[in-house]
């Protein structure tokens, strides 16, 4: 037994879960546990109260309305991978196989991935590239935040401590939409050394990198270059200097800078194809 002592609660409704989240002391929600459990086993995380969301039915499920797909926070990667709705979310479909291994995907959730905000994770960058909306709830009420404002730093988000991520809204792909995705990793299923997700639709181009900075980041200067002239890839890659590249165990900022260019080149080829 490795984790520090905690009180375990298994609410059945969202209201109960939110009341528990509003309690005293250090409280953590348990979603798929695929990041929290290792952190607790290493005692990097030592919550006093663990609020297990796995029985909260209100947090699961996928609905579709007026071109928007709403995915419940507790939707697991592998449930999403099997879902019909994926036909309208081609970028998500492209990214999902790159997230970890089958057993991890069978437990890990979309909400957990967004709440954790690992800078190397695929889906936060996909959310950014799609202009997603993150829905949050607490005992004080509900609100939604654009992905552009949600990710604020290394494992830092706009979520308040007593809030839960309840769902995420993604725009369904239009017929004209094209998209690109590429990552380099040491082995398949490992966190990426660098990666990019991008969408091109009528209302513009969005390019989001992961594993190059302390958070998933848009490359707005490169977006402008490529929107004005899709052939100016070299110029767009030069414009990536706008990003605040940070190193990790895989390498320093210079290597991240280099790899960002490599993955953008490959993903852009996919868009033009």
């Amino acid at each position: 037994m490795k984790p520090a002592d905690f009180r375990y609660a298994r609410p059945a409704t969202l209201d109960e879960a939110l009341t528990l989240m509003a309690g005293e002391g250090e409280i953590a929600a348990l979603a798929g546990g695929q990041s929290l459990m290792p952190m607790m086993n290493f005692r990097i995380a030592q919550p006093e109260v663990l609020v297990d969301l796995n029985a909260v039915a209100d947090l699961a499920g996928v609905t579709e309305m007026d071109g928007t797909v709403r995915i419940g926070a507790m939707t697991r990667y592998s449930d999403l991978a099997r879902h019909d709705v994926l036909a309208r979310l081609p970028l998500v479909a492209r990214a999902l196989p790159h997230v970890a291994h089958p057993s991890i995907r069978n437990r890990g959730t979309l909400g957990g991935s967004l709440a954790l905000a690992d800078p190397a994770a695929e889906l936060p960058a996909v959310a950014l590239a799609l202009g997603a909306k993150v829905h949050l709830a607490s005992t004080h009420g509900t609100r939604s935040v654009a992905a552009d404002d949600f990710f604020q730093g290394l494992y830092e988000t706009d979520r308040a401590e007593d809030e839960l991520v309840t769902a995420i809204d993604l725009p369904a792909a239009t017929a004209q939409e094209t998209y690109g995705f590429h990552e380099v990793a040491r082995r398949h299923g490992d966190y990426a050394m660098a990666g990019v997700a991008l969408t091109r639709r009528d209302d513009g181009l969005r390019i989001a990198f992961f594993s190059v900075s302390d958070r998933p980041v848009r490359a707005k200067a490169a977006e402008t270059v490529l929107r004005d002239d899709p052939t100016k890839l070299d110029l767009a890659i030069e414009a990536l200097d706008e990003i605040d590249f940070t190193g990790d165990l895989n390498g320093g900022p210079d290597m991240k800078r280099h790899l960002a260019g490599v993955v953008l080149r490959r993903a852009w080829a996919e868009v033009l194809a």
Partner: peptide, 27 residues
């Protein structure tokens, strides 16, 4: 490993492959 990296703890829960080191017993 106890961290999801090695797969030595693989079991099926409700017919789904999981790392048993990353699932609480109470679950």
């Amino acid at each position: 490993c106890g961290t999801g990296d090695c797969g030595a703890c693989s079991v099926e829960m409700e017919g789904v492959l999981v790392c048993s080191c990353l699932v609480l017993g109470v679950e």
